[in-house]
């Protein structure tokens, strides 16, 4: 009986490299769109959470607590299986983008909220005293300062988001993990399939992790 990493299995994988390339590309696309969505949600809800308005804070808490305290898989299943019952049929790509986008948006909201709250309240007061409106003060005075604090944790969120797109394999997401899984379950060449898949995730995530460390050091120096 051949071992899990027998040479002919690697050859088979190499011959069908397109399956992996396709999944890889899909994962990158879903990650990118998901990250854009997560950032938009995160910034919006982060600002709401740091504001003085009770309703805004409540909206932030509901979103963050609901999303952070339920598994991503369930949220994805909900989008994929429950929404069609209400007449909303989403293509699996959109389910992926919405799934990881909404999920990591909740984490990013907390990162942004902490970043904003790290800025001395005198900054907002100075801006208001000069006639800035709340949102304009946020944009020109507070967020540019919060940026430096939030870059490292944001990069970590980006890494988690990329890895979490693999959950889409459970709903035939067409992502890297799914393609690896379906390829190997048809021929049982699990060994090479999962090693290559892991390496592909590593290729995107490792540079980002390094970037996070670098940003962290930079923030320490300029703080």
């Amino acid at each position: 009986m051949p071992g899990p990493f027998a040479a002919f299995k690697w050859v088979a994988l190499l011959n069908e490299w397109q399956t992996f390339a396709e999944g890889f590309l899909h994962t990158i696309l879903i990650s990118f769109c998901g990250l854009v969505l997560a950032l938009m949600l995160g910034i919006l809800f982060g600002i709401l959470g740091s504001s003085q308005w009770r309703l805004a804070k409540l909206a932030n808490r509901c979103y963050v607590e609901l999303i952070q305290n339920t598994p991503l898989v369930i949220q994805i299943f909900f989008l994929f299986n429950a929404l069609p019952r209400f007449g909303i049929m989403l293509p699996v790509f959109s389910v992926g983008v919405l799934g990881v986008g909404i999920y990591h948006g909740a984490y990013i909201a907390e990162v942004i909220r902490a970043g904003i709250q790290a800025i001395h309240k005198g900054q907002m007061e100075a801006a208001l005293s000069q006639g800035f409106g709340y949102w304009s003060a946020m944009r020109h005075i507070i967020l540019p300062q919060a940026k430096r604090v939030v870059y490292p944790p944001l990069t970590n969120q980006a890494v988690s988001l990329i890895k979490n797109t693999s959950v889409l394999a459970m709903i035939a997401g067409g992502d890297l993990m799914y393609n690896a899984d379906s390829w190997s379950s048809s021929n049982l060449y699990y060994g090479p399939a999962y090693v290559v898949t892991a390496l592909l995730y590593l290729i995107i995530c490792y540079p980002l992790t390094r970037a996070a460390r670098w940003l962290e050091r930079k923030a320490e120096v300029t703080a």
């Binding site: 001395h120 005198g122 900054q123 007061e125 100075a126 801006a127 208001l128 005293s129 000069q130 006639g131 800035f132 409106g133 005075i141 540019p144 300062q145």
Partner: peptide, 20 residues
């Protein structure tokens, strides 16, 4: 209020200059 604040300037104990 934002219009009025434009003509009522304030100097703070902690300066509150924009550090960036």
């Amino acid at each position: 209020i934002t219009t009025i604040r434009q003509s009522v300037a304030m100097v703070f104990q902690q300066f509150n200059l924009y550090p960036h």
